[in-house]
Design a binder for these strands. Structure first.
Lengths: 227, 227
DNA sequence: GCAGTCTAATTGTGATCACAGTTGCCAACA
DNA sequence: TGTTGGCAACTGTGATCACAATTAGACTGC
């Protein structure tokens, strides 16, 4: 698994952290669907390691609610309900909105260069006739996190990563199902956000991000596939 | 360890979760000071369990940054710097401020009864000539979390708990060193916050909380004991 | 053909063992 | 006396084993 989330920067020295990176990448990329049950032994066998590193990884994933333990003590990807998605969406708007507003006032030229680089990658991918959804998802995530990182609040990053880990499965399900939505919805919001950021207009940047987040959430809810 | 944090509601069925509750309680109550190094074997020996449940607990604590692993792979309570405290304070103001504002518009009579109950416990403890600091710390925490819980955003609770876990060690150090500060500073802010909550005035409640959080942080910084 | 039961496989949890890296102490030498 | 050397204890990581609980499946009895 080399397509591991570069957003999460750890010491990949230990086997356990490596398994964590593998599993969190699987979840954030939506390759694990809500409701999927995981078996520690199966994972250990598939990854060619013992059960110990897998337990380390699963413990951490459960800690930030990217996985959940059933009363049976089995562990699965949490099923996303409409109520749960709307709740997390409100939280994301509050927290990530705060992050962009801070970023608008704090970004350095190096930050902005990085942000524009990811924005370019995302736009280029979306303009293709047959966009690579996986690459678009990754570019979108990199764009958002490069902005949040410009807020210079490192303690905030793991919190936002936790939120993305929770919504990852359904967001990617969304993108995969309807590639054309990201072209218009996300594209428009991103353009507004970029413009506001460059003007250091925190309020407008926050509004654009709010539109981005709630737009995606409303689209998923409107599809009616959530319990 | 019976004084375990009731804020964190889990299934204490497994030994590992029990150790986690013990350790997080120790940290949140400030019984572990920043810089203290922890030895998995020592903890296991002291608690009379094997190393496995301890590893489970420490993994989770490290995941939400209540503990940190050094390059030596030793694990310790993170040392709090002034910059770090100020950063977390800004994040707390943003997130917990959002929570109280939501709570102001969402609380039910049952919520308010619970909030007033904890407020009474805290005030009563502070009015004593020789307040029990440990009880005051616990009551203060219960008061805050009963408010946040009224926001009806359960996914937000673990996030705030994580923030408190990070600042717990220094906040309790503060209270322990100067019991009189909580009487005036925190008392005033709490009264304002309670009044605003009852009027469902979210903005004012947020302002009062902001004063409470930043007041405590500024006091600690002003003492100049942080590196 | 269907329901109930009993067995066997699989699950997570906890303990124990093995190993490599680090730390710290104490003696021996300059 | 100050520094360096090496040895011993201890550290976390990973693997393996043991056990109880749950689950799935097949077989028996109706």
């Amino acid at each position: 698994m080399s397509l591991v989330a570069p957003v999460i920067e750890e010491e990949p020295s230990t086997l356990g952290s490596q398994v964590y990176a593998d599993l969190s990448g699987l979840i954030m990329r939506g390759e694990l669907s809500p409701g999927d049950k995981l078996s520690l032994r199966s994972i250990a066998l598939r990854l060619g390691v013992s059960m110990q590193p897998v337990r380390h990884a699963v413990d951490r994933l459960v800690a930030d609610q990217a996985l959940e333990v059933l009363p049976n003590r089995a562990v699965r990807v949490p099923i996303m309900t409409t109520a749960r998605l709307e709740e997390i969406t409100r939280i994301r708007i509050a927290i990530e909105g705060f992050a962009v507003e801070e970023a608008a006032g704090a970004w350095t030229p190096a930050d902005m260069a990085e942000i524009e680089r990811h924005d370019g990658i995302f736009r280029r991918e979306c303009r293709k006739r047959t966009p690579d959804l996986a690459r678009a998802v990754m570019a979108n995530r990199d764009l958002h996190f490069s902005i949040y990182r410009a807020a210079a609040l490192p303690s905030l990053m793991p919190i936002i990563e936790g939120l993305w880990l929770r919504v990852g499965p359904v967001l990617n399900l969304d993108m995969r199902a309807s590639p054309e939505r990201i072209k218009q919805g996300a594209g428009r919001c991103h353009a507004d956000m970029m413009a506001a950021l460059e003007r250091r207009d925190g309020k407008r940047a926050r509004l654009a991000l709010t539109a981005d987040i709630s737009g995606a959430a409303e689209f998923i809810v409107s599809r009616g596939i959530l319990p």
